[in-house]
Design a protein around this nucleic acid. Structure first.
Lengths: 226, 226
DNA sequence: AAACCGTGTTACGGAATGGTGACAAACAGG
DNA sequence: CCTGTTTGTCACCATTCCGTAACACGGTTT
């Protein structure tokens, strides 16, 4: 599972540039153009990191940073601040705001990626994906894009495979349909759809006996059990 | 009011060194030499933070960390791990253990104090909902969406589960029916309050012996007791 | 002691939920 | 351009779940 990064900047070109570079580097990126939207997205997605421009309309970066720290859901998410003035640095990193690092504009993409990597590797969150998983007779191999049951490979389509791996990597924890739509389909909008159900059905059909690992939690979502 | 810090290490000299530095910096310090003693002290004092050496006789640091997280009284206390090997870091900070930060030996006192200050400044505000709770033989696991009694899972519907967790997270405090309707059902209007009663009954029935945790407070509401 | 209040208990019909089969659009490969 | 596969959506149905009403019970008040 790629680390999720939330980019907050009011200039569309800046967002686009950041987004391109981060995606290139293998991160999952979402963006927000103002403080209110950023708070909302952060709450909903709990990203692994927030990259945040100080200059924002309405709620400025400082304010947003404080708010992120105040909410239980986001208080521990690392924050990287983008600032124009070197004079602000002390305040940014101080206890009052508690950002994890800063960058002064202009900066190179390489510089940015280095900072991000450093913060994430420091271990704030960073749940690195397991490349191969085995649950009894069920083996899932990510790089080979293969799933097998008792040594016999199971033919899965791309979506089915991604759904299976997403569930398996969070084994034990229930995933809501919305979460799955975001993580597997990469939808932002919350369309009410039975799509997830249908794909679960197809997945179960193909897995056969191995489908005992896929639990339905009525009223909540689905869960992979070991 | 000085923040209380519990230091856990089996080497007396190490404890002394830590104690000196922390007291110098204005913290109230207590110490424990092994896992069992640490658990007992943590329960009794509920410190603001635990500094914990991984290498311990009997119960090692990992085990202790897990146990601290499981008990309601200490599950939210930030933990700073002292570890010798960089290889262990992932596990320490991962979901399984959930320490808040780590330091590799050897480290300077200044470094230690910086980490502590940072964690405390953040954790003071962050009352994040507990993901797992244990009350005697009753275990409630939010992400897995599972409740169990003496290791045996209890089948609960979505609403019943939410009702149980809502009460358990505010253990000790009485919740009025209106409050429960707001928090569990997310209703604004005042509908028939007997709905809560009915669900409490179903919950008690399914919990069996564990229903001793659910108190009725006549004329007020319900309360979860430990 | 009787009326009363708050809660426990039981039962039931409507509503929500998820499984299933079918289908058409989108897509990929030759 | 054709063909077979994949994928999102829909309608239908069995099942489960939930809210309400009605009644029973015990403690409290008058």
């Amino acid at each position: 599972m790629k680390p999720k990064i939330l980019v907050v900047d009011d200039e569309p070109e800046a967002v686009e540039l950041l987004e391109f570079n981060l995606k290139q580097a293998g991160y999952a990126v979402s963006a927000a153009g103002d403080g209110a939207a950023a708070l909302k997205k952060a709450r909903a997605q709990t990203p692994d990191m927030v990259v945040l421009d100080v200059m924002l309309p309405e709620m400025d970066g400082f304010e947003l940073c404080k708010n992120l720290r105040l909410e239980p859901a986001t208080s521990r998410v690392p924050i990287l601040m983008l600032t124009a003035k070197a004079a602000e640095i002390d305040r940014v990193l101080g206890l009052e705001l508690g950002a994890d690092d800063y960058l002064t504009k202009p900066f190179s993409p390489r510089e940015l990626l280095l900072r991000i990597k450093k913060i994430l590797s420091r271990g704030a969150v960073a749940e690195k994906p397991r490349e191969q998983m085995r649950f009894g007779d069920l083996v899932i191999d990510l790089p080979r894009h293969l799933a097998s049951w008792k040594g016999k490979t199971i033919e899965l389509t791309a979506t089915e495979f991604k759904l299976l791996t997403t569930l398996a990597q969070r084994a034990g924890r229930v995933q809501s349909r919305d979460q799955l739509l975001r993580d597997v389909w990469e939808y932002d909008s919350l369309i009410d759809t039975r799509t997830v159900d249908t794909h679960m059905r197809r997945l179960r059909e193909k897995l056969g006996a191995a489908s005992k690992h896929l639990d339905t939690v009525r009223g909540v979502g689905y869960r992979f059990v070991e």
